[in-house]
């Protein structure tokens, strides 16, 4: 994770992290895990801080998150998660989702995010895929 962050930062790309309150298994758990991965804490933004930034972002990269990025929570009253606050990743110019397969997440809810025209699905193991991207970033240019 830190390698991806470093590789992108080196290229002058501004990298931030958008953290949903229930990411991880206890309140604030994700922040601790990212801090452990040596990501500086001023790049970790909570949901309220990061959501206004998505429309200006070129890429939203979703790694291993599902329901908390599901736009159905905003738009589809019949969805079981309707009304749940989410990360507005779908408002970014390009959305990338790293995911093992199309299978629905823990709550078993289909995610319309994956069918958007500007969404790219990156199928594979998160760790391997991030490693591949980092290698490509290092190799190219």
């Amino acid at each position: 994770m830190l390698e991806l962050y470093d590789a992108l930062s080196k290229k002058g790309v501004e990298v931030k992290f958008g953290i949903h309150p229930v990411a991880g298994r206890m309140p604030g758990h994700m922040n601790v895990l990212l801090a452990e991965a040596d990501i500086p804490y001023d790049k970790l933004l909570d949901m309220d801080a990061v959501n206004p930034e998505f429309p200006q972002a070129d890429v939203a990269l979703v790694i291993g998150a599902n329901d908390v990025t599901n736009p159905a929570a905003r738009s589809d009253p019949s969805s079981p998660i309707y009304g749940m606050p989410i990360l507005d990743v779908d408002k970014a110019r390009t959305v990338m989702v790293i995911k093992r397969s199309m299978s629905p997440g823990f709550a078993g809810i289909d995610n319309p995010l994956y069918y958007l025209d500007r969404t790219m699905m990156l199928f594979g193991d998160a760790k391997v895929f991030v490693g591949d991207i980092v290698r490509e970033l290092g190799a190219g240019h």
């Binding site: 790309v13 200006q56 070129d58 599902n66 970014a92």
Partner: peptide, 20 residues
């Protein structure tokens, strides 16, 4: 993916437990 990321100005990563 790497090509697009490299040409971006801002990237926001939304991590979930899967990444952790």
């Amino acid at each position: 993916a790497a090509a697009i990321l490299a040409s971006a100005n801002t990237v926001i990563i939304a991590p979930g437990y899967g990444m952790a």
